[in-house]
Design a protein around this nucleic acid. Structure first.
Lengths: 122, 122
DNA sequence: ATCATGTTTAGCCATAATGCTAAGTATCAC
DNA sequence: GTGATACTTAGCATTATGGCTAAACATGAT
């Protein structure tokens, strides 16, 4: 339970941009070259390059160069920590609700006992 | 399939900060007042207030004021779109792998046929 | 060798994000 | 009312982000 998890911050930050999510979505369909990734965004190449390096530093993609073409590929397993963190919050919250539930149940039972002791004839 | 999904950007951006994730984790255990949320962070109140408003604008928390105390509570269902987006990327990627699989299978079959036609005697 | 193609680097600009302090407002306790 | 408590607002400094252009570099085609 690290208080500051830089990996998670990098991950979420990488996914927090619409352009980068579009790039990831495109790469989910298959590897692509930098130019092919840039075209649908309508942005200039250097700008796209920067997005790509953010994605790569977050571990969400890998890339390799063959000749003058750099091919990028998604690494879907890199999203797992993000998914897991979200899941854990849900789990903690659910556990708390369970405790609340049990608490309420106990209160209701005790209340029933009290009523029974003080006379159930009403 | 909106190209630019501002909600998702807000969500991921809100979760991209360690302090905010710590606050969410604390709130998963139960509602808390602003001061109680500020204390473990070591940050000043105005700074924490800002983090809280980022979380609230993303829909991740709600808050209400009773007297001079503002109580914040998590809204775990707000994380669902983020979880769903991650899940969809995985699904698209998995579907692509399936297609690749089938492609390879077909290639292998055709290759087998070719060999059979041109003579299967080794 | 020359030229087109596909990045890559460097540097600039505008805006947004994260922290702070100082001063304000509202409520509760006396 | 006075003072303490719990935010809230305003404003400022620093750094990060997201876009651009212009120029460099590397490779493939002629």
């Amino acid at each position: 339970m690290a208080k500051h998890d830089p990996d998670l911050s990098l991950l979420f930050h990488a996914m927090a941009d619409g352009t980068r999510r579009a790039i990831l979505a495109q790469l989910a369909e298959g590897p692509a070259a930098v130019t092919d990734l840039a075209e649908p965004t309508g942005l200039k190449l250097p700008t796209v390059m920067r997005h790509l390096s953010v994605l790569e530093e977050a571990g969400l993609i890998v890339s390799s160069k063959d000749g003058r073409i750099r091919t990028c590929a998604i690494r879907p397993e890199a999203m797992e920590p993000a998914r897991a963190w979200i899941e854990e919050q849900r789990a903690v919250w659910a556990a708390r609700l369970d405790r609340l539930d049990q608490f309420v149940m106990r209160m209701m039972e005790e209340n029933a006992h009290d009523k029974a002791e003080s006379g159930d004839k009403d």
